[in-house]
Simulated scan of single mutants.
Amino acid sequence: MELFYALQHYGGYIVDDSGWDDNQIGIDNSTLGDTDLSNTTFVNDVNTLFANLKIIDNNGPDSIGGGGTPIVQPAPTLLANSPTPLNKKNWTTTASDNSANAQLMLDGNTSTGWNTAKNPYAGENIVIDMKKPRTFDRVVMARRWYRSSH
């Protein structure tokens, strides 16, 4: 199974410890068609995996994965080349809520941003009109810089 191979060769990281006696694996939606989550063999394999996971506590910049000789070369960096931001001049924005502030998403200032000023709900949307067709290979949304009260 790909999951076991990836963990064995590349490792994994604990990303949340909610304090529950619970194990979860995030599975990309695109693979759900290939994965029968109710299959007994799959469930048993995942339980075996969790029973055999080990915590590495000496991971660092000079000892990725705890050091030692890697089994395989590290996976490529997701953003190996820094993306070139598109010129957002003349772009316009509209939003389902707080539309007047939606343009703050495009101002290049990491201390400003847009939020709905409401609790999240189904159907929220924001539209960015780039004024002409554009070709790009990724969208980077840097929410980490903007902190809102909602």
Rank of each mutant, 00 (worst) to 15 (best):
A6C: 14
L7V: 10
Q8G: 09
Q8I: 07
Y10R: 09
G11T: 01
G12P: 01
G12Q: 03
Y13A: 13
I14P: 00
I14V: 12
W20N: 09
W20G: 01
D21Q: 09
D22R: 04
D22P: 00
N23L: 02
N23D: 14
Q24D: 13
D28C: 10
N29V: 09
N29I: 12
T31L: 14
L32V: 08
G33F: 03
D34M: 12
T35E: 09
D36V: 03
D36M: 13
S38M: 13
N39G: 06
T40W: 01
V43D: 09
N44W: 03
T48C: 04
T48L: 02
L49H: 00
F50L: 02
N52H: 06
N52Y: 00
L53N: 03
L53H: 01
I55H: 05
I56D: 01
I56V: 11
D57E: 10
D57S: 14
P61S: 13
D62Q: 15
I64Y: 12
G66M: 08
G68P: 06
G68T: 09
T69V: 15
P70D: 08
P70W: 07
V72Y: 05
A75R: 07
T77N: 06
T77L: 13
L79Y: 13
L79E: 10
L79A: 10
A80Q: 12
A80T: 02
N81A: 14
N81R: 04
S82I: 13
L86I: 11
L86Q: 11
N87Y: 04
N87V: 13
K88I: 10
K88C: 02
K89V: 15
